[in-house]
Nucleic acid binder design. Structure first.
Length: 323
DNA sequence: AGACTCAAACTACATGGATT
DNA sequence: AATCCATGTAGTTTGAGTCT
């Protein structure tokens, strides 16, 4: 974790001109074990303000609801500003942390310290040299890999057949993965070959901050419905959560084009609708498990939902996966 | 070694849809 | 209307493998 601390110190000195060293925090002994196990704590002083940095052991994207509880718990043992630190925070989590006024530092990218009057969102915007989300096609490659047995040895040629994208799009996808440091690309003969040498769980954790919801549009429809279940209907199948009375389905943009005129009517409200339809950025049938969308895309499609029971159901679903 | 071949990768531009 | 984004297409370059 020294690497993250060094990055934070460098970032603070670069952006704020603060030359301050972080030192490990000797905690009071009152913190529950899972917190001391899950996070590392460092003290640092910012313009005479004592601050406590909490850094998750693994570089995972903690869900804001859980994080808020953890932070409140730590805050009761610390008399000063308690700051969450993570190298790569997904855009939607970043937004929600700001909404909840949770101070955080994403070294190299952004910091939000409302108690000290610092909100460096603009700096972040200027410096977004690397893109903050993967393109839909690149995300499709990641989800495809997560849905298959191996994480190694994918060439553009095999993915063209499996995903139906053009060669150029797959080449761009490989470039994005390379730029984001997700897996490695080596040459097999002349052809580039993408591999992720860690397990699928690591791939998921590493890619998660860069993944976004596959849902482009949600609409109410009346008439024939597609086959693949998505949204809360799918989550009901994959967790203990009760499904809604009106089913949700997913479709690709291409399929929707052919349905739009002939088969179904769209409605402005749920009243009288036979289904809710999600139009996706990529084809949900590529990864569907029977009639239900894959759990990874499902997680991404619902993680913006501000509802604790949904968050818990999503977490449970991911925990249940046999990586 | 040099020439040839073929497919992958890249550059630059086009397109269609979404967003402002 | 103007701009952006994701993707596709045409044309060019590159380079590994093969033949002479």
């Amino acid at each position: 974790m020294n690497k993250t601390i060094a990055a934070v110190e460098r970032y603070l000195s670069e952006v704020l001109g603060v030359q301050s060293k972080a030192r490990p925090w000797k905690e009071t002994g009152n913190l529950p074990f899972f917190l001391t196990n899950y996070y590392e704590f460092y003290e640092i002083s910012l313009w005479e303000h004592p601050c406590l940095l909490m850094i998750p052991e693994e570089d995972v994207d903690v869900l804001p609801a859980a994080l808020k509880k953890h932070r409140d718990c730590v805050q009761s043992e610390w008399d000063g500003c308690c700051i969450y630190v993570q190298e790569a925070i997904s855009p939607h989590n970043r937004q929600r942390l700001i909404q909840h006024r949770v101070p955080f530092i994403a070294p190299g990218n952004q910091m939000y310290l409302p108690d000290l009057g610092i909100d460096l969102r603009e700096y972040f915007q200027q410096s977004k040299s690397s893109k903050e989300t993967l393109s839909p096609a690149t995300q499709a490659v990641v989800v495809y890999t997560l849905c298959h047995a191996t994480t190694e040895g994918y060439t553009a040629s095999t993915l063209i057949k499996e995903l139906g994208y053009s060669r150029m799009t797959l080449i761009r996808a490989f470039n994005e993965l390379e730029a984001a440091n997700i897996g490695v690309i080596d040459k097999r003969g002349r052809e580039r070959c993408w591999s992720f040498t860690g397990g699928k769980r690591e791939l998921w954790n590493q890619a998660l901050p860069l993944l976004s919801s596959p849902v482009k549009q949600r609409i109410w429809i009346k008439g024939k419905t597609p086959k693949i279940q998505a949204g809360f209907t799918a989550l009901g199948e994959r967790s203990m959560l009760n499904p809604p009375s009106i089913c949700t389905y997913a479709t690709s943009t291409e399929e929707w084009k052919t349905w739009k005129e002939a088969v179904v009517k769209t409605l402005p409200i749920s009243e009288g609708a036979t289904a809710e339809l999600e139009i996706w950025h990529y084809d949900p049938s590529l990864f569907a498990d029977g009639d239900i969308v894959d759990p990874y895309s499902l997680y991404l499609s619902l993680r913006d939902t501000e509802d604790e029971r949904t968050e818990i159901a999503l977490e449970e679903m991911i925990e249940k996966i046999e990586w």
